[in-house]
Amino acid sequence: MTEQASSSVPLIEIQGVSKRFVKRLDFAGKLARRLGAGLEEETVHAVDGVDLSIAQGEVVGLVGESGCGKSTLGRMVAGIMPPSDGAVLYKGRDIASLSGDDKLEATFAVQMIFQDPFSSLNPRMRVEDIVGEAPVVHGLVSGNGKSDYVDEILTKVGLDPALKRRYPHQFSGGQRQRIGIARALAVKPKFLVCDEAIAALDVSIQAQVINLFMDLREEFDLTYLFISHDLSVVEHISERVVIMYLGRVVEAAQAEALFAAPNHPYARALLSEVPRLDQRKRDFQPIKGEIPSPLDPPPGCHFHPRCPQAFEACSSARPMLKTIAPDRISACHLND
C-alpha cells in the first residue's frame, strides 16, 4: 500500500543542490592578508545547483570527467557529505530534517559502493565484521544471528561464506568489491550510489560485477545512481543518463535517445571520443583544450572555451536547462 502511495513521489529527489569547498586562510594567511598580501579564500564550486529526481526502480547513469562534481554529488546523495545549498529528499522528506528512526531509515536506504576496493574496506577488520557490524549495532540482527546473516549476504554477492574469517587483503580486487557490496546490502538499502564502482577492476572482472549489480537489482528491487566516466558501462546499465560538466548538468535524457543523438556539444564530444571496439583505426579528432579548473570556471557556459560552436552569448550568459524533447533537458544556447 505504501508502494502505491510512494509511486508518485520519487525515491530520491535532489533540489538545487550545491557544494562549495572553501579553503580558508589559516592564521598565517590571515596575517599575511592583513599586511597586504593578495591572499583570498579559494572557493571550489564542486556542484552548482543540480536538480535530479530518481524514481523507485530506476537506474540513472551520471557521467562526466574529473572535476565535474559527480562524486561529490553522489556523496551528498548518500548522506556522507552535507550540501552547502539545496536539499536531498528521501521519499519526499528532506534528509537533513529527519531524526531518530526516520533518519536511520533514510541512512540505511541509501548506501554507497566505492571506487577503490582497497581503501574502502577497513584492513584491520575481518570480512564478517565488515559486513555484520552495522546490522548488529543497529539491532537488525542479534549478535548470535550475525554469523548466519553474514553467510546469507555473502552468498548473495557470490562469495564463499567459508572465507568470512579472512581479512580484506587476502582477497582479489573483484572479491573485495563484492565485500563492499555485501556491506551495503547488509542494511537492506533501497538505493545504491555506485561511484566508479568498477573502474578499478580488470575487464573480465568488471563484467562479473556489472552482472551482479543487475542481478541484485532484480532480487532486491534496487534503485541505482551509477556514477562513471566510462560511457560504455553507463550506456549498458542505465535507463536514464545525466551528463555533468564542471559542477553543472549539461544534458539529461533517456539513455537510448541520448546515445543516439546527443544534443549538447559537450555530450557529443564525449560520446564520440570514447574508445570503442567497433571503431577501428580511426583518425582521432578530439575537441581542443583542457578541462578548466573548478576554482576559476569560465563565465557563461562553462564549456564555451572548448566548444566548436560557441558564439558571443555563450561567454556571457549561463545557458539554463531547457526541456528540448519529452523527458529530455539540455543547457545550450543553440537550443534557443
Binding site: S172, S204, S232, E235, I237, E239
Partner: peptide, 18 residues
C-alpha cells in the same frame, strides 16, 4: 565482456573465476 559490444540491460558474457 566489454559492455559496448552487448545490448543494453542484458547480462554480459562474463568470464568466470578470477
Amino acid at each position: 565482456s566489454v559492455p559496448s559490444a552487448n545490448k543494453r540491460g542484458e547480462r554480459l558474457n562474463q568470464i568466470p573465476g578470477m
